[in-house]
Design a protein around this nucleic acid. Structure first.
Lengths: 156, 156
DNA sequence: CTGACTGCAAAACATTTGCAGCATA
DNA sequence: TATGCTGCAAATGTTTTGCAGTCAG
């Protein structure tokens, strides 16, 4: 199932519409992002591409991520309050995140009823939503088991 | 209603428990934060304190915000993908955010049913939630009216 | 008194940007 | 061929940190 087909077209059209060019770097970035599953940051891409023998500068990575963000193909959030974290968006899919503050892991969840309530809230406020990020921070089941007590603490 | 009383005690206890001291600066920060309503960033505090004749360095502001965050009295989120944004947490209160990407405004909303669904999700995953931030980005009603079409776009 | 705290200024970090040469349409 | 694009390295802006003097307990 060549799932990225629609996305590829969407990106190509987006570039064309804006009078932008389909360069080797943009294609490499796109392929790399849509070849994998989910979260990554700008540096991950630099490393992964380099591993594949494709050298793309960090600046171009950021520039391209902006484009992909603009055309709605990737989302950009701050999961652990650190750097930007990106993830590919599959058309029509949406999910939210449980972020473990202990191991840094991310569990995705989908809850249609939350989405509905969100929409209702937006309607109530006359707010035209474009994206929403919903993250719940805490300690995941494994870390709770491993640690007994999530009395984290003050390592920094 | 001296609402901040519990919070004040909570902070004092927290400091004591950690063997930390109740300094003039920490008190000033605490008072300043709990004297106002909601969102602020580190710099706001520097400015506001300076306006009150209390000079606290930016470094100390960050250090104290860390403490307040650690003891659960303030939350720390990235609302507009920029710097950290803090807000005081009132015990037992919780709200979420509609963030306008056009004017930068923030509308708060409370939706108990979303909270409930969140809790259900956490239970399902055995996830011990500590905080959750739920932000919906888009264009607020005023900006929609002002701009006609939110065809933002490529200003940069 | 002592150990923790503060302010300063420099460091660290992610992200953005100016510019000169390169590549796509 | 003409723009737009890329890489580099320097700039930016926020947050963090080392250090010497200061203060709370």
């Amino acid at each position: 199932m060549p799932e990225a087909v629609d996305e590829r077209k969407l990106f190509a059209d987006f570039l064309r519409r804006r009078g932008l060019k389909t360069t080797r770097e943009r294609t490499a970035l796109f392929e790399e992002i849509f070849a994998t599953h989910h979260h990554f940051d700008a540096d991950d891409l630099v490393v992964r591409l380099r591993g594949n023998g494709k050298k793309v500068s960090r600046a171009t990575v950021y520039r391209t991520l902006d484009l992909l963000y603009d055309c709605g193909l990737v989302s950009r959030v701050r999961l652990n309050d650190e750097k930007y974290r990106y993830e590919r968006l599959l058309i029509g899919e949406h999910h939210d995140h449980l972020v473990c503050t202990s191991c840094g892991g991310v569990i995705e969840f989908v809850e249609a009823r939350i989405e509905e309530l969100q929409e209702a809230v937006c309607r109530k406020h006359g707010f035209a939503a474009t994206t929403h990020s919903h993250q719940i921070r805490g300690v995941c089941a494994e870390c709770q088991a491993r640690e007994g007590k999530p009395r984290g603490g003050s390592t920094a």
